[in-house]
């Protein structure tokens, strides 16, 4: 007999599977585990939506080159050092 219990997972495990799902990394058994879990758990269904939203935020944040006007300055000393290095490489 098949061990049906191995298809029942906790919310902790389900939320890990959700991350793998968003990265297209679920194997068939994990897909079934997550499917069954989400049928009975509205919190994890919500977590999946929030995790997607967090993905969008993080992707935009991390790949964005503009820092929205909050530019830091590189020390003048370091700037001079870089220029000196370039001069000496000739």
């Amino acid at each position: 007999m098949k061990d049906y219990n191995s298809y029942i997972v906790s919310c902790e495990k389900a939320s890990l599977l959700i991350e793998k799902k968003l990265g297209n990394a679920l194997n068939p058994k994990e897909k079934t585990q997550l499917f069954i879990h989400k049928l009975i758990c509205s919190i994890c269904r919500k977590y999946e939506k929030q995790s997607k939203a967090l993905d969008v935020l993080l992707r935009n944040k991390i790949t964005n080159e503009q820092m929205g006007g909050s530019n830091l300055m590189l020390d003048q000393e370091r700037i001079d050092q870089i220029k000196l290095l370039i001069d000496n490489k000739i």
Binding site: N71, L72, L74, I79, I82, K83, I86, I90
Partner: peptide, 17 residues
């Protein structure tokens, strides 16, 4: 080297940020 040094002045702070 002249061009790169100009780029250092122009872009280094933005890159550092």
């Amino acid at each position: 080297s002249k061009i790169i040094k100009e780029w250092v002045d122009e872009f280094s702070s933005e890159m550092f940020s």
